[in-house]
Amino acid sequence: MRIEQQKGRAPNGLTAAAPQARARLQPERPRPARALWHFARRKPLGAAGGLLVLVLIITALFADIIAPYAYDVGQGVERLKGPSLRHLFGTDNLGRDLFSRIVYGSRISIAVGFGAVLVGTGLATLIGVVSGYFGGAFDLIFQRLIDAWVAFPAIILLACLVTISTTRDTSPTTSIAIVALALGLVVAGGSSRVVRSAVLGIRDMPYIEAARCTGCSDLRIIRRYILPNILAPVLILATVQLGGAILAESTLSFLGFGVKPPMPAWGSMLAGSGRQYFLVAPWLAIWPGLAISLAVFGFNMLGDALRDVLDPRLRGSQRK
């Protein structure tokens, strides 16, 4: 039980050191532009990741403007055409413009990714903070719950949630929301442990003690002191989960539990027509595959770089 670790040492290097990081970062924060430049210089991979994420978000926001065609309308005679000026990425087996589908697909990936993180990280933070901060009976109960949660095979949870929900309401939004919710629920259990150990790491810090002595309420302490100080691990967790959710969506599609057609989810494009036609029309697999990989790559690189920057123990660690 990690609660019994001495000195609240976190099991994972990215967590316990966070409060100091925050404390050190705050006073000397440079102007945003310079900070960005500095970040890009020192962490080129992270910057590249950030750029990818930015492109992804912009694509998703302006999909209507960027995409030359609708994602669900194609002509049979146009099917399986290779990339050309008319169809930048070629067309799929139903004659639909692949570029437009990839562009619209970014919305689904973003929605699934952020949705999953909202649920996953949100729930993880809530449980982690309550469990870690209050300790005692709360902690004991929550941790037993988490034991069961972590032990529940994700695939069952995902399949059941998606199947049960699609028989009720099946608007495209619901279908995306359910996939996101399911993925979020899956990761929340394990992640709450990371948050909890971060909280354990700072719970007994002098400044928290001081706040408690001055009569601050628990809620205020959590809001004012705990939450800001665990922001770093939570942020890192979120970026990693984002990539993971996008990837998991594709596996769900492969298993037949994905977002419903004709929604152009990258995962279902790769798992469906991509796999079926990739010898005849390789672009059907290449583009969605590349899109998934780049998105996952982007979020993970950004997360890595954030960790390096926000964690002081890693910050100065270059060998001189």
């Binding site: 669900d72 139903l94 037949g256 539990f257 004709p262 469906g272």
Partner: peptide
């Protein structure tokens, strides 16, 4: 039903929806 009859059937669903439209 999209989880029983395979890819070809699933694509026929998409195609029929488009044609009806």
């Amino acid at each position: 039903s999209l989880n029983a009859y395979g890819n070809t059937f699933n694509q026929s669903v998409e195609l029929v929806i488009k044609q009806l439209k």
